[in-house]
């Protein structure tokens, strides 16, 4: 076991990440893919409407006292 976790590259965005923007561009005209992209857009838009606009203030403001 490593004594101390090392700073190591976590390669996000490679392999396991759905590449939906590129995929949508490639499959224009594919109705299923278009529908999926539209669904995702609509989901992200809905999320934008429910989240407080200033993300940084929200995150910094969320401070609790320690519990158990």
């Amino acid at each position: 076991m490593p004594a101390q976790p090392q700073k190591q590259p976590h390669r996000h965005g490679e392999g396991d990440q759905p590449d939906s923007a590129d995929a949508a561009a490639q499959v224009q005209g594919n109705p299923q893919a278009t529908e999926r992209a539209a669904e995702l857009d609509s989901l992200l838009d809905e999320i934008d409407t429910v989240l407080e606009a200033n993300a940084e203030e929200f995150v910094k403001g969320f401070v609790q006292k320690g519990g158990q």
């Binding site: 996000h12 965005g13 923007a21 992200l44 999320i47 989240l51 993300a55 995150v59």
Partner: peptide, 26 residues
């Protein structure tokens, strides 16, 4: 994770962006 990656990708946000922490909390 799926949601965080989709938001990160579609909105072109680095994983360090506070929006993604906010999504984690929300």
């Amino acid at each position: 994770k799926r949601l965080v990656e989709e938001v990160s990708h579609q909105r072109r946000l680095d994983l360090n962006h506070p929006r993604l922490q906010q999504i984690d909390m929300a």
